[in-house]
């Protein structure tokens, strides 16, 4: 199979999955008890006149399939409706938050992946030593930490007792910055604890996978050959072992996107960080269904898209994938 066909097929799967996510979302939020009109109005007894006007305004008098088509059309144009609590367009509320979340998650994932892979390499190279055991044990412990709890502990240690870092928000409220550098520093200080929390909990994913992938690879004959040729351990690692251990690491990276989104919801909630995760938490508490629906769709779409990118990356890294 040629590369174009492979990519086209994966793209087809991507759109099919997006379609089903939309359908799932459409059905799920129609199971909700109560009529959407009373939910929107936030009160029970609406006059018949108001009910009729709202029904036709939102197209609820149309047959279900027609409503679904309108829904799809709206999704395609990023029209997610109006928030019930903010009384603003959902897309406007979300787009403010997206940047913040993106900043936090990009920062955290770079550290998580870099630290995780490095720890995994060190553990695999020093297999069986005390250092290896320390890395494995602390990784397993980190994996067992609930993200939100780790955040709470970080708050109590670094905020409440040590007063080292701010524990909520993204900037100091009411602050006027002399320079844009001062503003950047303030934002980075606010990002410190959420990022640290994600690093503590998530690094294990990469250290354990990298370690076991490398340990597997080290038993292969070609590694023996490489050593017999007289290559140094570092050359064996970078030329022969790492390229072959990359596939499981890439799979973990793809799966990590889903975990990262979960982590974002927990961490942003704990640190009152104005991102998508906190928005989702607030919309659950306030039962703001349009926001909830839109954030779920965006999170799911993001994960599916990340999977698509990984599939394409596989093809570039591993020539065998084309035949799949």
């Amino acid at each position: 199979m040629s590369r174009t066909v492979y990519v086209a097929r994966k793209a087809g799967q991507l759109f099919a999955t997006l379609f089903f996510i939309a359908a799932f979302n459409f059905c799920l939020f129609r199971i909700l008890p109560g009529s959407p009109l009373t939910l929107l109005a936030r009160k029970g007894n609406l006059s018949a006149d108001v009910v009729a006007r709202l029904t036709s305004l939102f197209g609820l008098d149309k047959p279900l399939w027609q409503q679904f088509l309108i829904y799809l059309q709206n999704l395609a144009t990023a029209e997610f409706g109006i928030s019930m609590t903010f009384r603003r367009r959902v897309i406007d509320v979300i787009s403010e938050r997206l940047v913040n979340s993106f900043m936090l998650l990009a920062l955290a994932s770079v550290f998580v992946i870099a630290i995780g892979i490095s720890c995994g390499i060190v553990a695999a190279m020093r297999r069986g030593t005390a250092l290896d055991r320390t890395i494995v044990v602390s990784s397993m412990a980190g994996w067992s930490f609930p993200t939100f709890w780790t955040g709470l502990i970080a708050i109590i240690v670094f905020g409440t007792y040590l007063h080292m870092f701010p524990i909520s928000g993204i900037v100091t409220p009411g602050m006027r910055y002399a320079t844009s550098w001062a503003e950047t520093v303030d934002i980075l200080r606010h990002l410190f604890l959420p990022t640290l929390t994600l690093i503590i909990v998530d690094t294990a994913q990469f250290s354990l996978v990298t370690r076991s992938a490398l340990v597997d690879v080290f038993t292969e004959d070609y590694i023996l050959t490489a050593r017999a040729k007289g290559l140094s351990e570092n050359q064996v690692l970078s030329r022969h072992a790492m390229p072959n251990a990359m596939l499981p690491i890439m799979t973990t990276t793809a799966l990590y996107v889903s975990l990262l989104i979960g982590g974002a919801i927990e961490v942003e909630t704990v640190f009152s960080f104005p991102g998508m995760g906190k928005l989702m938490y607030d919309s659950v508490l306030l039962r703001d269904y349009p926001i909830l629906e839109a954030s779920f769709f965006l999170f799911a779409a993001f994960t599916v898209f990340a999977n698509f990118v990984t599939d394409v990356m596989y093809m570039i890294v591993d020539p065998r994938v084309k035949s799949l």
Binding site: I261, G262, M280, F296, T303, V304
Partner: peptide
């Protein structure tokens, strides 16, 4: 393919 935490929420 769906992110688990948002799904269960």
């Amino acid at each position: 393919a769906l992110p688990v935490t948002p799904l269960i929420i």
